[in-house]
């Protein structure tokens, strides 16, 4: 078979039109997912069974099922429920974009909460004891000691999840969204040239990943400046 470069040149600008939507999906669900994850993590480490137990069930359910299935359930399933159609949430679930955001947020929240919990558990007990001995209250220790140290510890794994989330946004194309992947699929349907189009699509995702990696490395260096011996 032949590899048609002119086809790629034609398709690339079209696919890049979808980059805005890809970024909207990524950034919105990353932010909402982080908020959800913080809530879940706090429930999980609260030491109270009636908080930690629901959080564990939630995490189990969302890590235990494919994200594609979750997207389908939110998109095809929720609108069938009368109480959702009647509620203020309906505008969100009526819209495929809203459904994609909800599904991606719920999914990433489950994973990130465990990443954050790992960070919190990694904080040296002795450091917290020193804070306690100095008279810092429990909330003060959490805000001034645990949070900054745990953030630093959790960052590499968190970055991994953000990159994974970027790729998950491609699944939004299955529920009619015209993100980069959605556009690529349309072009393939018109040109019957899956090879060229999907390879160029893959390269775009790789380039985006490269920049996200760079950004994360920079944040890591900034947050980790205290861990370097040279001042």
């Amino acid at each position: 078979m032949s590899f048609d470069l002119s086809l790629i040149a034609e398709a690339l600008p079209k696919m890049l039109v979808g980059i805005g939507l890809t970024f909207q999906l990524l950034i919105l669900s990353a932010i909402l997912g982080l908020i959800l994850a913080i809530g879940l993590m706090l429930m999980r480490i609260s030491g109270k069974w009636y908080l930690s137990w629901p959080a564990q069930v939630y995490i189990y359910v969302f890590r235990g099922t494919p994200i594609l299935v979750q997207i389908f359930i939110v998109y095809y399933g929720f609108p069938q429920l009368d109480f959702i159609r009647d509620s203020f949430l309906w505008p969100i679930f009526r819209d495929p974009f809203g459904c994609a955001i909800v599904a991606l947020t719920l999914n990433t929240g489950a994973y990130v909460s465990e990443i954050l919990r790992g960070g919190v558990l990694g904080v040296d007990r002795g450091v917290l004891e020193a804070g306690e001995a100095l008279g810092l209250s429990k909330p003060q220790r959490f805000i001034y000691l645990t949070t900054p140290i745990a953030t630093r510890l959790a960052l590499p794994a968190y970055g991994n999840d953000i990159i994974s989330l970027l790729k998950s946004t491609a699944l939004a194309s299955t529920i009619t969204l015209m993100d980069m992947t959605g556009i690529a699929r349309t072009i393939v349907a018109q040109t019957y040239a899956p090879y060229e189009i999907f390879i160029s699509l893959a390269i775009i995702y790789m380039i985006l990943t490269f920049f996200i990696q760079k950004l994360l490395a920079r944040i890591e260096r900034y947050l980790g400046r205290y861990a370097e011996r040279e001042g």
């Binding site: 040296d124 306690e132 001995a133 100095l134 008279g135």
Partner: peptide, 19 residues
């Protein structure tokens, strides 16, 4: 808290706030 304000403690492993 009143007691902890009056009692200073030094640990074997220093336990400075690393950040």
């Amino acid at each position: 808290n009143a007691v902890r304000r009056e009692v200073g403690m030094v640990f074997q492993s220093f336990n400075l706030f690393p950040h």
